[in-house]
């Protein structure tokens, strides 16, 4: 069950703090005026690489594709020394055991989506068995989706209980809860869903499935980071954050790091507490890193596209 043992500690989620959208956008614009140069840039870019959940979530995924991706996760750009691995690879449950085997000893975690990803439109038993299957296959992390329909219907208890049930099914695996913010409509609802997820037991809150047009944005991420901060103030428990989808450029990723740092502090700047869900971000970061080293602007032809 939830980490919050006493029901009296649970807030009324209808009273989640409100968010001013224009204020949020001004703040995110301000993060983007931070100028990240020279040494800061190199250190930051390496952090970014190490925070990536390298992801393939396609109907056409094959063992071959997953194997290639697992190799890339460990060998981002071998011509450059001292590069970290990515944080994890993220796959469907059916690919977990294969990925696990490919990544043995690398330190790269295996994350699996579950709960009838991406729509979540399945009975609770299916979601639980989906999750248990992935964990049994060796998943270190589970990325679940919330029931957005029930959330919009105001059935917050249902959403809460579902997350708590999946958390239980996770056992030792860390649970990332995908809010699918692009379907929530307002930042106030993003905030409310974040609160529900954290109080129900999420280890991470995550923006998006990557399967709809609107994925992670800086404003949405900031709202979630603020929710994490408020939760931490109240409980002392750290919750991780994972923006996913739409972050494909190194510069933008660095601005996310600035946002995390100035909102939550340096403690969150590791892949234990912050992840990027991304498939094409790694190569842009690598190109920037090589450019920092050589001084020359790079071509995509020189970077592998696994």
């Amino acid at each position: 069950m939830s980490r919050i043992k006493s029901k009296s500690l649970l807030p009324d989620f209808k009273l989640s703090p409100t968010v001013d959208q224009v204020g949020i956008e001004e703040r995110t614009a301000r993060f983007q005026t931070r100028s990240i140069k020279s040494e800061t840039k190199v250190v930051g870019l390496k952090k970014v690489l190490n925070m990536i959940d390298l992801t393939t979530l396609e109907g056409k995924d094959t063992p071959g594709k997953v194997k290639q991706m697992c190799y890339k996760a460990q060998h981002l750009h071998d011509s450059m020394p001292d590069l970290p691995t990515t944080a994890a690879v993220c796959v469907y449950p059916s690919m977990v055991s294969l990925a696990k085997a490919e990544l043995i000893g690398s330190g790269v975690k295996v994350a699996s989506v579950s709960t009838a990803f991406p729509s979540g439109q399945a009975p609770m038993e299916v979601k639980i068995s989906d999750t248990k299957f992935a964990v049994d296959q060796g998943a270190d992390e589970i990325d679940m989706v919330i029931s957005r329909g029930r959330f919009h219907a105001g059935d917050y208890n249902f959403v809460f209980d579902e997350i708590a049930a999946i958390k239980e099914a996770c056992g030792r695996a860390r649970l990332k809860v995908i809010l699918e913010t692009g379907e929530l409509g307002t930042l106030d609802k993003v905030r409310r869903a974040s609160d529900i997820a954290m109080y129900a037991g999420a280890d991470f809150i995550k923006t998006s499935t990557g399967k709809i047009a609107v994925a992670a944005t800086m404003p949405v991420t900031l709202v979630m980071l603020e929710a994490i901060k408020d939760y931490y103030y109240k409980t002392g428990i750290m919750i991780g954050m994972k923006p996913a989808g739409g972050i494909s450029k190194a510069k933008l990723a660095l601005h996310y790091l600035v946002m995390v740092r100035e909102t939550l502090g340096d403690a969150w700047l590791t892949n234990e507490w912050f992840r990027f869900g991304a498939s094409s971000l790694a190569n842009d970061v690598l190109m920037q890193l090589v450019k920092q080293e050589t001084g020359n602007y790079q071509s995509a032809d020189y970077f592998s596209i696994d």
């Binding site: 990240i36 800061t40 930051g44 002392g236 340096d266």
Partner: peptide
């Protein structure tokens, strides 16, 4: 349960901002 501590931003960490004149 993790230990309760203040959220702080340490500006002297390994990832401070380099000068950007």
């Amino acid at each position: 349960m993790a230990k309760k501590k203040q959220v702080e931003v340490d500006l002297n960490s390994d990832w401070g901002y380099s000068p950007a004149p």
